[in-house]
Design a protein around this nucleic acid. Structure first.
Lengths: 335, 335
DNA sequence: GATCTTAATGCAAACGTTTGCAATAGCGTT
DNA sequence: AACGCTATTGCAAACGTTTGCATTAAGATC
């Protein structure tokens, strides 16, 4: 079994130095002679010694932890199932680790109302990355103005008192829609939820292109919950009631696009011959579906890096600004 | 801006009691008069007071944190992209929170070799949930025999010195394969990686059913990396070199199944008329693909709850045993 | 050889909780 | 009036680091 936990003092005794020296040695403090440092570090390794993070955090008043707060709209407790969001979290995780920080995975359920108190005063994390602006914008705003180091994954165009990193959703909407038109679409349909911050920008992009092409009369908006199931259902229903009165879909996300695609395929509407489809996100499934899905790619890896970098800069006391990530059109069979 | 952080002593002073009383009051210790307790709790709320978790952990020698260690096979640093794994993590997160614990998201990159030292001695977490047995079984074994509270998501049939929670993969393989045969399949193909712990069991289930039906001669194994891309590539290549010499596929995961499906559809092989397909996991995409994918559903929510429950039981000092989750066949259009 | 400088190390306080034990107050019993 | 009992509360130590300051050792300078 495990022998009793070594503390720094024990290690120091073994090495025949004081705890201060041991501490400094482990932190590679140049005050300590190079040789001594190496000796103690080696000793620590052979004895499987680890510093007590709790003690260290108490003394240093910082945690080397970044909290990631997944901001679910749902009032209902439920796990995330959009693969895109999960990908974002996973890429943040990587970026966080690469900077030598650890990642506390949290959500509004744990953090309660007073995020500043919970995370910062509570010494659970040094800063927070919020994934998804959702409807809790009030909580974000409050935490931010309380001085909490904070970066949000959302739409950078949002006018807010906090730093936002996100794709250029407006441009993405334009590119996607323009692509539809270029491919001959005359009756474009937007499938999504314009109330939502990021998706709303995509819709605005859609509208601007449609207007420029004088197609406003023939364009449509189909408002749905942003799940593939809802997309499937509502396209189905629309086909039943209105028939096929559109020839191109810009879906607000890939999951939504895939749901719509399924409904169309079941009714033998040919993609891309009868209806063109463009999605958003570029999740793994976009490439694997049949026909494969044309989409707007969001660079989640870059996103993760940028979110973390901006947060660390804030922690260092410097001012930071929101920024927008470039998007790119990935052309596949559905268009 | 933020006024200076209140400490327990300050709150106590405001309330006109000692810190001990304040501490006990916040922890609802019955030593303190009911009335006093309520008064102090209310005061804490109005002043946005939060206990310093670092100090608390130092003193208590426990963290109320559970670490989730994602055990990637890949030597290459890379983010996870199998939606199923992410779903598992997300459901663990929920279960962890429901028990009043927090979730530290980690991976072998951060934890290094000496997991016990890093998590337990380092006072970063009270216990660890490992997702995926992967190839690091040695690290797991070592941590476990060092006495680390630990539960692994994997295949419960594995003979190992640690507690495992997982689906009945063998039975799942049998059910899936039997279903193929019931639907008239005469030349079943297993698509996956039999070396892998969980997938290997699925393959064994496949074999046992095939044997019982005297189809061993006509059954095939196609060994691939477990990504949809690899599945797509290898089915493509197989069609080119061998032609269509199978009429049913049991894919080791839904992502793999979807990759295979795409290859088949591109060559106008009809699903389910020419080839039946059954997957494993029941990710969201299984329902949305066209044709929708018959699959073996794993109950990730139950998994999350069970993993956490078993870990907490271990923390309480009791012995725990591995256990198997029931699986179920979800029949859709692909079969 | 006394003094100064520099390099390396040690001492002890502080971070903010929790808790065993001691202390106090209030009240009934003899 | 002294005592014992119970219900509350307070005192002070301990958890294991880190770091400002003091100290020591060793070499350099006059």
């Amino acid at each position: 079994m495990q022998q009793k936990k070594l503390k720094l003092a024990d290690l120091a005794k073994i090495a025949g130095v004081s705890t201060s020296t041991a501490s400094r040695a482990l932190n590679d403090n140049p005050l300590i002679k190079q040789e001594t440092r190496e000796r103690i570090q080696k000793l620590a390794k052979t004895h499987n010694f680890s510093l007590n993070a709790a003690a260290s955090r108490l003394r240093l008043q910082k945690t080397k932890v970044i909290a990631v707060l997944i901001n679910l709209d749902a009032e209902t407790e439920q796990s995330i199932d959009d693969p895109f969001l999960l990908k974002v979290v996973s890429d943040i995780n990587l970026a966080v680790n690469r900077q030598g920080y650890e990642l506390l995975l949290s959500n509004s359920y744990m953090a309660g109302e007073d995020w500043y108190g919970y995370f910062i005063d509570g010494r659970r994390a040094d800063g927070v990355i919020v994934v998804g602006q959702g409807k809790q914008q009030a909580s974000i705003e409050r935490a931010s103005s309380a001085g909490m180091p904070l970066v949000v994954w959302g739409d950078p165009k949002t006018q807010a008192g906090y730093v936002i990193v996100g794709s250029d959703n407006f441009l993405g909407g334009q590119v996607a829609t323009q692509h539809l038109l270029d491919k001959g679409c005359k009756q474009p349909l937007f499938l999504g939820e314009p109330e939502h911050a990021e998706l709303g920008e995509r819709y605005k992009g859609f509208c601007s292109v449609v207007e420029r092409a004088n197609l406003t009369e023939r364009a449509q908006l189909l408002k749905i919950d942003i799940t593939s199931q809802a997309a499937y259902d509502s396209i189905n229903q629309k086909l039943r009631s209105d028939g096929l009165d559109f020839d191109g879909i810009f879906a607000c996300s890939d999951m939504v696009a895939l749901g719509a695609m399924k409904a169309l395929k079941e009714r033998y509407v040919s993609i891309p011959n009868d209806v063109l489809i463009v999605g958003f996100d570029d999740i793994a499934m976009a490439d694997v579906s049949f026909p494969s899905l044309t989409t707007i790619k969001q660079d989640t890896q870059k996103a993760g890096e940028l979110l973390v970098e901006k947060l660390l800069t804030q922690l260092a006391g410097e001012e930071v600004e929101s920024s927008q990530l470039a998007i790119s059109l990935v052309e596949r069979q559905s268009s």
